[in-house]
Amino acid sequence: MIISIASGKGGTGKTSLAVNLALSLPGQIQLLDCDVDEPNVHTLLSMKNEQVKPVYTLVPEIDEQKCNQSKNCVNFCPNHAIFVGKKGINFFPELCYGCGGCILSCPNQAIKEGKRQLGVTHRGVANHGVEVVYGNLNIGEPLAVPVIKAVKEQASPNNEVTVIIDCPPGVSCPMVESVHGSDYCVLVTEPTPFGLHDLQLAVDTIRQLKIPIGVVVNRSGIGDRQVYSYCKSEQIPILLEIPHSRKIAELFAEGIPFVTKMPEWKSQFETLFQMIQERYGR
């Protein structure tokens, strides 16, 4: 089963939930950190035997000798990443998202597939035998999605393995790409107007992907009750509430998953998983 953990708002506790859940469940667990801008899962765990693999994106490789100045590539390119001039051809890699249309549109076969590195993926084994895969986007690189895909491609093909995906915040392409293909999506929120607003955006997005949704309310007790009434009116189950606690916040500050110091939480995470599995497991 693949469970993705997402939220519209950042800092609601996605990574904390993903890591604590992974450390609490029985059986083989794989934890994928798809927040490749700012991967944090590995900062809460100790990783061993890390393997690093580069991630590339498609870019055009232009043979200027073969170019007949048709400018078909210039006219096709949706991002204006190619310039053809008298003194040469310029390609602007940071604007290219690798659709390959320039290659198809060239009448002279002057363009072929090249590649450009965007970042890396790390794979290793962490505490409790949890396998962790995370991506690291190069600094200054706008294109996160290919790195997310490269992390997801390393998901275990074995159905016995429970795959937990920690997603990036927001509701646009990186989050959609991370959640896509999951069996279930847990949205983590906090009971404040910010949390509610971004939860609504996230629900609207995940519903388009036709993936069942449950909510975890983190820092319960702060704020107001509007998240609860929203979930009730939308018939979204609240799977778990994690109360606002200075102790949990301080453990997070130290980089310690709180379930390791507060073992009474283990059964709560197991129950959370059972609720999801009973309804949506395969």
Binding site: Y97, P157, E177
Partner: peptide, 17 residues
């Protein structure tokens, strides 16, 4: 910068059942 998805490489995940 456009929020390009970047190049898709796999065609989803093949998981046996």
């Amino acid at each position: 910068m456009g929020g390009g998805r970047g190049r898709g490489r796999g065609q989803g995940r093949g998981r046996g059942s």
